[in-house]
């Protein structure tokens, strides 16, 4: 009996694959809501790679809250590539663990940003509160659903978009602060993530308007039919870029650099951009953009850097403990 147990244990331990065979598989560590997009993109890339080299490969996926995912890679999760919805979550790989060089964004086209989205408004059928632009959100009887900017990239982008809207109209910092204060007074609940905010608005029927990524808004319409909600494009919004990077220390150890590089380049290819568009992510490589104009309304979009200097500055001023958001929301 005892011997059996031991041999069984040894056999099982031996059977556990400690390392997956090198270079024929890569791991993509990604943010929370990119699952559907990567399911299609990975399938297309696997076919492409098979045709090109005859090799059969696997692309493994790990999804989760973006900051948590980045932390796992720092702690040793063997990600060949990391695909996030904010550049600070990739910067951290350099800052905390020197896994990638500081200038990682310069290594791929368009600052390593193949796709982007932007916060837009979703209102109930017929737009009963007549919401047209950011100004309408701060009216006293309007209830706005936004995820928590402290915990969610989605919420951060919406907050910064509102702030940038005031600044671009010529308002100063005090005016912008006053505007977002009024805006967040109209927020009945702060969900921790984008999907949670969607549930609040769609399933629990709370709020007159939901501010979330365009990609999420299209998905809601696709899932629930376009007869219940309407999309409203504000006059201006922020560009929410989805950067990608290969993790140098990991690919060099696993000898998977060529494959990882090809995978990332595939994001920028015609096919990769098309798949992104099918999932309502705005393709960012100009050559292919024209054909998507029908889907994506041309919008005036500004970058985080143009208003706030850099992501890390925006993060520090607005979302750190005791930062502007804490001041305006706790009151």
């Amino acid at each position: 009996m005892f011997k059996y147990l031991i041999s069984l244990t040894v056999a099982l331990l031996g059977a556990v694959p400690i390392t997956v065979s090198a270079e024929t598989s890569i791991l993509n560590v990604s943010y929370d809501v990119s699952r559907e997009y990567y399911k299609d993109l990975n399938a297309a890339f696997i076919t492409y790679w098979k045709e090109k080299t005859g090799e059969t490969i696997t692309v493994n996926q790990s999804h989760g809250g973006s900051t948590k995912q980045a932390r796992s890679v720092v702690d040793g999760l063997q990600a060949d590539v990391i695909t996030m919805n904010r550049s600070p979550d990739i910067d951290i790989l350099h800052e905390k663990a020197k896994l990638i060089p500081k200038d990682w964004q310069g290594r791929l086209p368009n600052n390593s940003v193949p796709t982007a989205s932007t916060p837009v408004f979703l209102v109930r059928k017929g737009n009963p509160k007549q919401i047209k632009d950011w100004d309408d959100l701060v009216k006293p009887n309007v209830s706005v659903v936004i995820p928590n900017p402290k915990t969610s990239g989605n919420g951060k982008y919406s907050y910064l978009a509102a702030w940038g809207y005031v600044v671009r109209k010529g308002g100063d910092e005090a005016k912008a602060k006053d505007f977002v204060t009024k805006l967040f007074k109209n927020v009945p609940v702060l969900d921790t993530g984008g999907r949670g905010a969607t549930t609040t608005f769609v399933q629990r029927d709370i709020g007159d308007v939901l501010i979330t990524f365009e990609s999420e808004v299209f998905l809601i319409q696709k899932e629930l039919g376009s007869d219940k909600f309407e999309i409203v494009y504000p006059s201006v919004s922020i560009l929410a870029e989805n950067p990608v990077a290969l993790v140098d220390k990991v690919v060099d150890k696993r000898k998977s650099r060529a494959l990882a590089q090809a995978y990332l380049e595939f994001h920028f290819s015609e096919k990769g951009q098309q798949i992104a568009a099918q999932h309502y992510l705005r393709p960012q490589v100009s050559a292919t953009q024209d054909q998507f104009v029908r889907v994506f309304k041309p919008l005036e979009l500004f970058r985080v850097e143009s208003i706030f200097g850099s992501w890390s500055k925006a993060e520090k001023t607005h979302f750190s403990d005791g930062g502007v958001f804490d001041q305006i929301y706790t009151r």
């Binding site: 556990v16 400690i18 390392t19 702690d75 040793g76 905390k96 663990a97 150890k253």
Partner: peptide, 24 residues
């Protein structure tokens, strides 16, 4: 203990042992 920034992280990575983020 076993994470890349942990006590044995470097040694484990050098010798290609995967403990965390893997089945062990």
């Amino acid at each position: 203990i076993f994470g890349m920034q942990g006590w044995f992280g470097e040694w484990l990575t050098d010798h290609d042992f995967k403990i965390i983020f893997a089945i062990p």
